[in-house]
Structure formats: structure tokens, C-alpha cells
Design a protein around this nucleic acid. Structure first.
Length: 322
DNA sequence: CTAATTTGACCGCC
DNA sequence: GGCGGTCAAATTAG
């Protein structure tokens, strides 16, 4: 129904607002961006209000919003000013204005490690603004996380993966994933060693890193998201799935950090199955939570708490089928 | 129950 | 000695 989409809109608005709050500090010196963000939030809420009021008049399901009726709205949902703002911030942080988010800094350097000639390929993977921001490149291999470490001078931990079939096939392939400290939506992925496991089941074929780069490049293009893939694709959308997953799959997790793993279960693993959960597990959510809630230490739930509890079941019923 | 993730400990290199 | 990388026990998820 439409009200439901209105609700999701509201959630988007809440999230934006929350994100904005978290980024107030960073945006302080960008009044115009702030203003625009406010506009967006206002608009989102206004639109959702309209939706609610005109629910019966013009059903405009979020999933089917085609550019036309509400292009701007769609834009907020897809790329959100805040996302752009963050890009700007990051760009500023990086200290040059040209590069921010979703630029084309695919691979940076290729260096060979000193240890026994193991090849080491490092590449930057800009996390897409659309779809699952949390999912670093997908390379048709399945990885198993075997460690995570705080790296000196980096804000974000580095995660260590090895090929899932390492034991069976003695596959030496490993990779390290780490977010740039000044660019939370850019992953630096380092591949070490080559896969010797060309198994058909999980690893369809030899997938050279290039292919992966292509994949992620495709994903990271904010231009034309495949209409069918991401209905409400946005860097926020996964957080919504997180939200629903959180509420549904767990009635209050263990300690405090329920978010990440819940997101993992709900997050989008596209072709590879495990891979998703591997990486999602310290996803941008956590990252953003870290980066954003740093200042305020406010959880993302203040407003959402009202909304989520009763939305979850609806959502999980219709929205997610994982 | 099995498999994967988490996380502190351990190890080697700089 | 500090740091990055890996191991492995404990824990969690499917």
C-alpha cells in the first residue's frame, strides 16, 4: 500500500535527519550544504505527508518511481544531499577538491611484498552510493574472515580474509579490506596471492581482479542503477534493511553491537553467498556510526524507535525476502 | 550440528 | 618495542 511507502519515506527522512545531525560538525562550515540538506529532509517529510494524505489518489510506490513524477525525490533517495555533502567533506579531508566519492580511483598501486615474492595488489574500491554501500567489490570468490586489526593511524580496522577453500585446495589467496580513514565509503582492498581454487560451485571461474573492478565500477556509477535491482537503492537503504533485519531477526541481541551482524544477515549478498556476510560485517553502517556518531554519540534510533517497531514486520513481510 | 565470525593472544619483522 | 598479520578458542548464526 501507499502509506507503507510513505512510511519508508519517513524513515528515509529520519535517517537523513539523523545523518545530518551526526555530520553537523563537519558541515558547519558549509551552510549551503546544510541548508540543502535541510531542504531535502523537509521535502522528504513533506512528500511522505502528501503520500499519506493522498494515499488513495495517486499511488506512487517507491519501487516503481520512475523519473518523471518525482525526479527530485528520487534523487534524494538515491544520492541524498547528505551523501554528497559527505563526499564533499571527505574530499576536503583528503585535501584536494577533485576527488571525493565515486570518482575513478580504481587501482592505486601494485607493489610486490617482500615476503617470498607474494604478489600484492592494492586497489581502491569506492563504495557505491547506491545499493549496498557496505559491500566491497564482489569477485566471485568466497572469503573467510580470519582476523581484524586496528591499524595505527587509520580510523578503521583492517579485515583479513582468506579464501574459503584454502584448506581444501590449499588456495593461498588472501585479501585485506580496509576503509580509508578519510573516506569511509572507499575501501582499500589488497589482494595477496592468487587463487588456485577454480571450483565450480562457489567460484564459477577464474575471476581476475579486473573483472571485479569492472563489477564494482559498474555498481559505483551513480548514474543508472539497474531499475530492477535497487528499487529504493540508496546508501541508506541498506540501513533500512538493517533496521528491519535488526528488529525481526533479533529480539535484542547480545550486548550492544547488534547492528553489524544483523545487517550482515539482511545485507545483500548478490552472487557469492558468504561473501556478503563477510564484508558486511563491519559495514559502512558501523563505519558511519563510528564516523558520524562520534560527535554526538546518538544512536540512530531516537526518532526511529517510534517508527521501527511497528514497521518492521510490515517491511520484512514485503520488503525483504532473504 | 556445522560452519563462520569474533576477538584476544601470539609471532615475526622493522 | 611496536606494529601488522595470523592463529585459534569461544561465540554466534544458519
Amino acid at each position: 500500500m501507499d502509506p507503507q511507502h510513505a512510511l519508508s519515506l519517513i524513515l528515509h527522512g529520519c535517517k537523513f535527519a539523523d545523518d545530518l545531525e551526526a555530520m553537523l560538525g563537519d558541515l558547519a562550515n558549509q551552510p549551503q550544504t546544510l541548508s540543502k540538506a535541510c531542504d531535502d529532509i523537509i521535502n522528504i517529510f513533506a512528500t511522505s505527508k502528501e503520500r499519506l494524505n493522498n494515499a488513495h489518489h495517486q499511488p506512487l510506490p517507491l519501487q516503481q518511481m520512475q523519473p518523471g513524477p518525482d525526479p527530485s525525490l528520487q534523487e534524494w533517495l538515491k544520492y541524498g544531499v547528505i551523501a554528497h555533502a559527505m563526499g564533499k567533506i571527505q574530499a576536503m579531508d583528503v585535501s584536494d577538491s577533485g576527488k571525493g566519492f565515486s570518482s575513478s580511483s580504481q587501482r592505486s598501486h601494485t607493489s610486490s611484498s617482500r615476503k617470498d615474492g607474494e604478489e600484492k595488489r592494492t586497489m581502491r574500491e569506492p563504495a557505491p552510493q547506491i545499493g549496498n554501500t557496505d559491500v566491497p567489490p564482489e569477485d566471485n570468490y568466497t572469503w573467510r574472515k580470519y582476523g581484524q586489526k586496528e591499524i595505527l593511524g587509520s580510523r578503521y580496522p583492517r579485515a583479513y580474509y582468506k579464501c574459503t577453500h584454502q584448506k581444501m585446495y590449499n588456495c593461498p589467496a588472501k585479501k585485506q579490506v580496509q576503509r580509508l580513514d578519510n573516506d569511509f565509503n572507499t575501501f582499500e582492498v589488497t589482494y595477496i596471492g592468487q587463487h588456485t581454487c577454480h571450483m565450480s560451485s562457489t567460484a564459477p571461474s577464474i575471476a581476475p581482479p579486473d573483472q571485479m573492478v569492472r563489477t564494482q565500477a559498474m555498481v559505483s556509477q551513480p548514474t543508472l542503477p539497474p531499475p530492477s535491482v535497487t528499487p529504493s537503492g540508496t546508501w541508506l537503504s541498506m540501513e533500512f534493511s538493517l533496521g528491519s533485519g535488526l528488529g525481526s531477526s533479533s529480539d535484542g541481541r547480545r550486548g550492544g553491537d547488534a547492528g553489524a551482524s544483523a545487517a550482515a544477515s539482511g545485507g545483500g549478498a548478490t552472487t557469492g553467498s558468504r561473501y556478503g556476510s563477510d564484508v558486511v560485517d563491519y559495514p559502512v553502517v558501523a563505519d558511519m556510526a563510528d564516523a558520524m556518531f562520534n560527535s554526538g554519540s546518538s544512536r540512530r534510533s531516537n526518532i526511529m524507535d517510534f517508527i521501527f517497531p511497528r514497521m518492521e514486520d510490515k517491511w520484512e513481510a514485503g520488503d525483504k525476502e532473504n
